[in-house]
Design a protein around this nucleic acid. Structure first.
Lengths: 266, 266
DNA sequence: CAATGTGAACTATTTCACAGCG
DNA sequence: CGCTGTGAAATAGTTCACATTG
């Protein structure tokens, strides 16, 4: 492992900005829909609207891929679908393993979009021997012991972790040791991986907390009464030096300006 | 122009950068773990490592909240847990509804992290009458007809959409019309919502595609043969003008520089 | 002449590096 | 003396606006 560093300056591939890469799948989805309706061409304006971005951004994004449009006309739908697919690597087959077949793992296995574009569920793995053999989404669950063989036999390079948080790092280590180099992590943990391995995480609880933050702000605009329950630890001050300041809460720096009113949904 | 400026400068709440907000939950989780181990204080270095970010970033992030650390010592764990919780709005109770109780909806309902910090599943909703009354995660599923009442009675402002893509926009519209102002969308669609409503999306298929992109690049470092199957549409050229240029592909602009093989797979 | 492709301006985010405090 | 807090520099990403072209 000789890793030392933990951050990831990598992931900046071949001149295409990461932010652009993250939007390509969005464009692809919109284009696929157009393709199914046999629409031959789209303007950046139309496509941008369908993908929920603004058109300048979309054009700039496409400019990183090359000049695939026609001035005065727009983009050829089929051609662009192909180019983006190729850029994303979806013209090839990606076998994936899903580890942890609980509620979430099962949901993932059943998720249609999984199989759609180039991804194929090569195996479902669970540590519980009782799960072994059970069919989920038409595939028999296999025991963790089979991991190495499965990964080797299928050339799996992408693994999905849907285990409880406690098992995630261990599973991750095993996946990596068997050759997996991309991991999609649903467990609420920070995984540490060696250089060269990509991890993306999907974290429900984080998303909700971000929403709560904004929700609180919205509500704060109006009300300013405070009466929500507080299941969280009370604001124990870290005990400053002994005896200078006493107990005010937030006044020295910026702190929450004025009112962090805790509103409540009526 | 009076209004002049663009549409979405919002979401930039109260001086705290969005990127920072997105990391607060991460810090909170790491801090909670420390708290459970009764660790009294942490340095930015340690906490950063636990959260998987670098320490300068963490300090900068915290500086937006106020000066909650002690120079020469670090941060008081309990105090910081409280401050971040408060900032995120987690000291209050957030009732949420989950709409669409398929595999994914059920997984979400069962997800422990849901209930943990301030979030409470107020109701599980499904359009299928056959689901009504069925208990999932200990809660009886209710029919969509009940939505309005449930939202009003519980003061729900956050909704989770776990329906198929086709139903998502409709469900979203209803949620919004009943007063929901934050939506977590698991359906693979771009939702359009009125000003003032926040949407965050979680999209498995996009995450996989991003991984595939990087995976492809890694592989491309070495090999350069292309022999995967091609389920995607063949590279039909958009038929350029009639007769000027003939068939070169990417030479005028940047295009994929250098090694992105040929445009068409064998 | 409509719509792409893109330099240039602007905004956001990260990182550096160090002054200053406990 | 160690570690926070933060200006300032460096990067990354977005938006503007328009010359260019099919």
């Amino acid at each position: 492992m000789a890793t030392g560093r933990t951050h990831r300056p990598a992931t900046r591939s071949r001149g295409i900005p990461e932010a652009t890469v993250a939007r390509l799948p969005l464009y692809l989805r919109a284009l696929t829909a157009l393709s199914e309706r046999s629409v031959p061409t789209v303007s950046s304006e139309e496509l941008a609207a369908a993908a929920g971005v603004n058109s300048a951004k979309l054009r700039k994004d496409f400019s990183y891929l090359g000049s695939y449009g026609t001035r005065g006309v727009g983009y050829d739908v089929e051609y662009l679908v192909y180019q983006i697919s190729r850029e994303l690597g979806l013209t090839q087959d990606w076998p994936v393993v899903i580890v942890g077949i609980g509620n979430l793992g099962a949901a993932l296995a059943n998720y249609g979009g999984f199989a759609s574009r180039g991804f194929r569920v090569a195996a479902l793995i669970d540590a519980d021997p009782a799960m072994a053999g059970k069919p989920v989404a038409g595939i028999a669950v296999q025991h963790t012991d089979e991991l190495e063989k499965i990964i080797n036999d299928n050339g799996v390079s992408i693994g999905v972790i849907a285990t409880p948080a406690g098992a995630a790092q261990q599973v991750c280590d095993r996946l990596v040791s068997y050759g997996v180099t991309s991991i999609l992590n649903f467990a609420p943990t920070v995984l540490s991986v060696p250089e060269g391995v990509d991890v993306r995480k999907v974290d429900l609880s984080i998303e909700l907390q971000i929403l709560a933050f904004h929700e609180q702000r919205k509500a704060g605009e109006e009300a300013s009464s405070q009466d929500a329950a507080q299941p969280v630890a009370p604001p124990v001050r870290p005990a400053p030096a002994a005896g200078t300041e006493d107990g005010h809460d937030d006044s020295d720096r910026k702190g929450p300006d004025g009112d962090v009113p805790a509103v409540m949904p009526a």
